[in-house]
Amino acid sequence: METAMEYGSIERELRIDASPEVVFEVLSSPEHIRDWWSAETAFEPIAGATGRLTWTDAETGRHDSAPFTVVAAEPPRLFSFRWTYDEKETEPEGAGPGNSLLVTFELVPEGGGTTVRFRESGYRERGWEAAVLEAHYNDHRQGWDFYLPRLVAAADRLAARR
Protein backbone atom coordinates (compact mmCIF):
# COMPACT_ATOMS: atom_id res chain seq x y z
CA MET A 1 0.00 0.00 0.00
CA GLU A 2 1.23 3.49 -0.86
CA THR A 3 1.56 6.14 1.79
CA ALA A 4 0.35 9.71 1.40
CA MET A 5 3.96 10.84 1.03
CA GLU A 6 4.14 9.02 -2.30
CA TYR A 7 1.23 10.91 -3.88
CA GLY A 8 3.44 13.69 -5.22
CA SER A 9 3.32 13.18 -8.97
CA ILE A 10 2.32 10.82 -11.74
CA GLU A 11 5.08 10.17 -14.26
CA ARG A 12 5.09 8.14 -17.46
CA GLU A 13 7.42 7.79 -20.41
CA LEU A 14 5.90 6.98 -23.79
CA ARG A 15 7.45 6.05 -27.11
CA ILE A 16 5.60 7.36 -30.18
CA ASP A 17 6.44 6.55 -33.79
CA ALA A 18 5.84 10.13 -34.90
CA SER A 19 7.94 13.28 -35.02
CA PRO A 20 7.88 15.75 -32.11
CA GLU A 21 6.04 18.18 -34.42
CA VAL A 22 3.21 15.69 -34.92
CA VAL A 23 3.09 14.79 -31.22
CA PHE A 24 2.99 18.47 -30.23
CA GLU A 25 0.07 19.03 -32.62
CA VAL A 26 -1.85 16.09 -31.13
CA LEU A 27 -1.22 17.38 -27.58
CA SER A 28 -2.09 21.00 -28.22
CA SER A 29 -4.82 21.02 -30.88
CA PRO A 30 -8.48 20.98 -29.78
CA GLU A 31 -9.33 18.74 -32.75
CA HIS A 32 -6.85 16.09 -31.64
CA ILE A 33 -7.61 16.48 -27.93
CA ARG A 34 -11.19 15.44 -28.76
CA ASP A 35 -9.74 12.30 -30.35
CA TRP A 36 -7.39 11.06 -27.64
CA TRP A 37 -8.72 12.70 -24.45
CA SER A 38 -12.42 12.66 -25.41
CA ALA A 39 -12.74 16.27 -24.25
CA GLU A 40 -14.31 19.18 -26.08
CA THR A 41 -12.23 22.32 -25.83
CA ALA A 42 -11.24 25.52 -27.61
CA PHE A 43 -8.01 27.40 -26.91
CA GLU A 44 -4.87 28.73 -28.53
CA PRO A 45 -1.73 26.72 -27.72
CA ILE A 46 0.18 29.70 -26.33
CA ALA A 47 1.39 30.43 -22.80
CA GLY A 48 -1.28 32.17 -20.75
CA ALA A 49 -4.21 30.96 -22.86
CA THR A 50 -7.15 29.59 -20.91
CA GLY A 51 -9.80 27.09 -21.83
CA ARG A 52 -12.11 24.46 -20.52
CA LEU A 53 -12.07 20.69 -21.01
CA THR A 54 -15.54 19.15 -21.14
CA TRP A 55 -16.26 15.44 -21.13
CA THR A 56 -19.74 14.10 -21.88
CA ASP A 57 -20.89 10.67 -20.72
CA ALA A 58 -22.48 9.09 -23.80
CA GLU A 59 -24.87 6.99 -21.72
CA THR A 60 -26.15 9.58 -19.27
CA GLY A 61 -25.42 12.86 -21.08
CA ARG A 62 -23.71 14.12 -17.91
CA HIS A 63 -21.01 16.74 -18.44
CA ASP A 64 -17.81 17.02 -16.41
CA SER A 65 -15.73 20.10 -16.96
CA ALA A 66 -12.36 21.46 -15.82
CA PRO A 67 -10.70 24.80 -16.52
CA PHE A 68 -7.08 24.92 -17.60
CA THR A 69 -4.37 27.46 -18.32
CA VAL A 70 -1.50 26.87 -20.75
CA VAL A 71 1.78 27.37 -18.89
CA ALA A 72 4.23 26.66 -21.72
CA ALA A 73 3.85 25.95 -25.41
CA GLU A 74 7.24 25.57 -27.06
CA PRO A 75 6.76 23.59 -30.27
CA PRO A 76 7.88 20.93 -30.79
CA ARG A 77 9.50 20.20 -27.43
CA LEU A 78 7.25 21.22 -24.53
CA PHE A 79 3.56 21.62 -23.71
CA SER A 80 2.31 22.17 -20.17
CA PHE A 81 -0.81 23.41 -18.47
CA ARG A 82 -2.41 23.84 -15.05
CA TRP A 83 -5.85 22.44 -14.42
CA THR A 84 -8.40 21.18 -11.85
CA TYR A 85 -8.70 24.51 -10.09
CA ASP A 86 -11.70 26.45 -8.86
CA GLU A 87 -11.88 29.53 -11.07
CA LYS A 88 -13.46 31.63 -8.31
CA GLU A 89 -10.69 30.74 -5.85
CA THR A 90 -7.88 31.56 -8.29
CA GLU A 91 -8.99 35.11 -9.10
CA PRO A 92 -7.20 37.44 -9.66
CA GLU A 93 -3.82 35.66 -9.68
CA GLY A 94 -4.95 32.67 -11.74
CA ALA A 95 -3.89 29.04 -11.58
CA GLY A 96 -0.62 28.38 -9.83
CA PRO A 97 1.16 26.20 -7.26
CA GLY A 98 -1.17 25.34 -4.41
CA ASN A 99 -4.44 25.71 -6.31
CA SER A 100 -4.01 23.50 -9.38
CA LEU A 101 -2.21 20.51 -10.85
CA LEU A 102 0.61 20.98 -13.37
CA VAL A 103 0.76 18.69 -16.41
CA THR A 104 3.96 18.67 -18.47
CA PHE A 105 4.67 16.88 -21.72
CA GLU A 106 8.35 17.01 -22.67
CA LEU A 107 8.99 15.79 -26.24
CA VAL A 108 12.40 14.36 -27.06
CA PRO A 109 13.28 13.30 -30.63
CA GLU A 110 14.54 9.74 -30.69
CA GLY A 111 15.35 7.90 -33.90
CA GLY A 112 12.38 8.40 -36.20
CA GLY A 113 10.00 9.05 -33.35
CA THR A 114 9.51 10.81 -30.05
CA THR A 115 9.91 9.98 -26.40
CA VAL A 116 7.25 11.75 -24.35
CA ARG A 117 8.03 12.41 -20.72
CA PHE A 118 4.72 13.02 -18.99
CA ARG A 119 4.38 14.37 -15.47
CA GLU A 120 1.41 15.60 -13.45
CA SER A 121 2.36 17.20 -10.15
CA GLY A 122 0.98 19.43 -7.44
CA TYR A 123 -1.09 16.95 -5.47
CA ARG A 124 0.51 17.52 -2.09
CA GLU A 125 0.64 21.28 -2.66
CA ARG A 126 -3.16 21.40 -2.88
CA GLY A 127 -3.38 20.92 0.88
CA TRP A 128 -5.97 18.15 0.63
CA GLU A 129 -6.61 15.82 3.57
CA ALA A 130 -4.96 12.40 3.14
CA ALA A 131 -8.10 10.59 1.96
CA VAL A 132 -8.96 13.35 -0.55
CA LEU A 133 -5.35 13.44 -1.80
CA GLU A 134 -5.34 9.67 -2.27
CA ALA A 135 -8.70 9.71 -4.09
CA HIS A 136 -7.68 12.49 -6.50
CA TYR A 137 -4.30 10.90 -7.13
CA ASN A 138 -5.76 7.46 -7.84
CA ASP A 139 -8.50 8.91 -10.07
CA HIS A 140 -5.92 10.79 -12.14
CA ARG A 141 -3.51 7.86 -12.25
CA GLN A 142 -6.26 5.62 -13.63
CA GLY A 143 -7.34 8.35 -16.05
CA TRP A 144 -3.86 8.93 -17.43
CA ASP A 145 -3.27 5.18 -17.71
CA PHE A 146 -6.37 5.06 -19.93
CA TYR A 147 -5.79 8.24 -21.97
CA LEU A 148 -2.02 8.24 -22.56
CA PRO A 149 -2.11 5.08 -24.75
CA ARG A 150 -4.85 6.84 -26.76
CA LEU A 151 -2.45 9.79 -27.21
CA VAL A 152 0.13 7.39 -28.67
CA ALA A 153 -2.46 5.91 -31.05
CA ALA A 154 -3.72 9.35 -32.15
CA ALA A 155 -0.18 10.57 -32.91
CA ASP A 156 0.62 7.36 -34.79
CA ARG A 157 -2.56 7.79 -36.89
CA LEU A 158 -1.75 11.42 -37.70
CA ALA A 159 1.85 10.51 -38.63
CA ALA A 160 0.60 7.73 -40.94
CA ARG A 161 -1.63 10.22 -42.82
CA ARG A 162 1.30 12.54 -43.53
Rank of each mutant, 00 (worst) to 15 (best):
T3F: 13
E129K: 14
A39G: 03
L151N: 07
L133I: 12
L78W: 12
G94Q: 09
L78P: 07
E25G: 07
E89Q: 13
T114V: 07
E134I: 10
W128L: 14
A160L: 12
G112R: 14
L14D: 00
K88F: 12
P97V: 15
T41A: 04
R15N: 00
R119W: 11
T115K: 14
R157W: 10
L158K: 11
W128I: 05
T60P: 03
L101S: 02
S121E: 13
V132Y: 11
L101T: 07
L14P: 04
P149G: 07
A95H: 09
R157E: 12
M1V: 08
R150V: 02
D139K: 09
W144A: 00
H136V: 04
A72Q: 15
T50L: 09
N138D: 02
S38T: 09
G98C: 09
A42R: 15
E40T: 09
T54M: 04
I46S: 14
D35E: 05
A72W: 07
L101F: 03
E106T: 03
K88R: 15
E89G: 10
G143E: 01
P45W: 14
V132F: 11
P20M: 10
W83G: 00
I16S: 03
R162M: 10
Y123I: 04
H63N: 04
W144T: 00
D35Y: 00
V152A: 08
G48V: 13
E13D: 05
F105R: 02
F118E: 09
V116H: 04
L151E: 06
E110N: 12
L101N: 03
I16R: 02
V116W: 13
E25R: 15
T104R: 09
L53V: 01
R157Q: 11
A131K: 15
A72S: 13
F43R: 13
T104Y: 02
P76N: 09
E31F: 00
P149L: 10
E2W: 06
E110W: 03
L158C: 01
R34W: 00
R141E: 05
S65E: 04
E125K: 12
L78R: 15
A72P: 00
G48N: 10
P75S: 14
P30I: 07
T60E: 06
V71H: 04
A47F: 14
W36Q: 05
F79Q: 11
L14Y: 02
T41D: 03
G111P: 09
P30E: 02
V132Q: 15
P45R: 14
T84K: 07
A72T: 13
L133S: 08
H136E: 06
W37Q: 07
N99L: 13
T3S: 12
A66H: 02
G61Y: 08
E110H: 14
G98P: 05
E13V: 12
V103H: 00
Q142H: 06
R12S: 01
R82E: 01
S80V: 08
F118I: 13
S100N: 04
E21R: 10
F105E: 00
D64T: 05
L133Y: 12
A155I: 10
